[in-house]
Design a protein around this nucleic acid. Structure first.
Lengths: 207, 207
DNA sequence: GGCTATACGGAGACACTCCCCGTTTTGTCA
DNA sequence: TGACAAAACGGGGAGTGTCTCCGTATAGCC
């Protein structure tokens, strides 16, 4: 009981903070190049620290990923705020949010898998992040459902999983922009009700 | 040139065939329990053969999976034939086929991942299987597009990937039947055009 | 300058994939 | 039936990865 109630632990040592940051930087690079499955020991070596140091800071791959994604939270939050205020209508807002989520989940190759697992288990550092974004999804979804532009039977969690799944598919449909667009279209048609705008699909040439 | 043109290799030895079958049986059980990520050495041990024997028959995990799935091909084919003849219309046929694919991809935990990879690379024993099913998907999709019940811009490969993705999501949404139904609904609304039947979604209670 | 909590690093236990090669088994042909 | 060559077996071991443990180093404080 000798510590303050607000911060139960004392401030980290300077070298600890330095190493942590360095590991994070290295992991960011490494996962970008090799996907989330990249060797953790290799990251430690490349960061110039021992394996023990890496595992002390991040007990497992998920913890490391969670820390990496935390750095992106802010961007996603500001995107949310932007959609809240600037979207033309609730449907576009929801669509924009799902696209933002899909991109977020595509930050590293293979990222959708641990995210999906986290969304199911809730006993993972990633789970907290996921739950937060599901709540935001719910906000946008409810708004769209209230004004009749989204189907009533759809739940936010399912839509979140759809965004992850879209990202998952994109990881395979390499270099095929058409697939990404097709997926987005299928998803939007999937949840949308009474589309107000005749969206771009021109009747075009018959053959 | 001393062999017959039709079968370039001689018949396998009796013990080889026996071991192969035994490995397959064991792998079926093992993957069912532990998912497709289960240890191959453990399968060999449980099957009572050496690791070398397993790897001689199936050079890698994908080859083993492909052999396991081959045993299921027949069931899927007969489902296809059933849908061809008994489905009320092209849309229901396509829907039924996609559901069959989704179930097929859910045979083992984690199966969608190698399937997705195979659908992209085409240099894997699983790729052949995937391509075959994509072709069938194309058949059902074209029929639906011809009679105006499926959107024109959708491609068979994308729909195949959607089926895999649905299976992938189901792997997470454990024991939640509602999610499975929701996903199926989103998918169908995603590709369907001018739904002829007012499908079950009752306007129901307002709150 | 010295003391202690904190943090470091890397050796090593354990697991998994996959190759290699000496040994065993099978099928065939006299 | 016996013997021989091809086919197949099995498991040791190299390579790679995860994660722990503990002797050593160092930052921060008095």
């Amino acid at each position: 009981m000798s510590r303050t109630a607000t911060s139960n632990a004392r401030a980290p040592r300077a070298d600890a903070r330095r190493n942590r940051d360095h590991i994070l930087d290295t992991a960011e690079q490494y996962f970008s190049k090799h996907g989330v499955g990249g060797s953790l020991d290799a990251i430690a070596k490349q960061a110039g620290v021992g394996a023990g140091t890496l595992y002390r800071h991040f007990p497992n791959r998920e913890a490391l990923l969670a820390a990496l994604l935390a750095a992106r939270d802010e961007a996603l939050m500001s995107r949310r705020d932007e959609l809240r205020t600037k979207a033309a209508n609730a449907a576009d807002a929801l669509d924009g949010w799902l696209e933002a989520l899909t991109e977020w989940a595509g930050a590293f190759d293979g990222l959708p898998d641990p995210l999906r697992a986290a969304a199911a288990t809730s006993t993972s550092p990633l789970a907290v992040t996921c739950e937060g974004f599901i709540t935001t999804t719910e906000e946008f979804l409810h708004a769209a459902q209230r004004d009749g532009s989204a189907r009533k039977e759809i739940r936010a969690r399912d839509l979140f999983l759809v965004a992850l799944a879209t990202s998952w598919v994109r990881g395979a449909a390499l270099a095929d922009g058409a697939s990404a667009a097709a997926l987005a279209g299928i998803t939007r048609n999937g949840w949308e009700l009474n589309p107000s705008r005749t969206r771009g699909v021109s009747p075009t040439t018959v053959d």
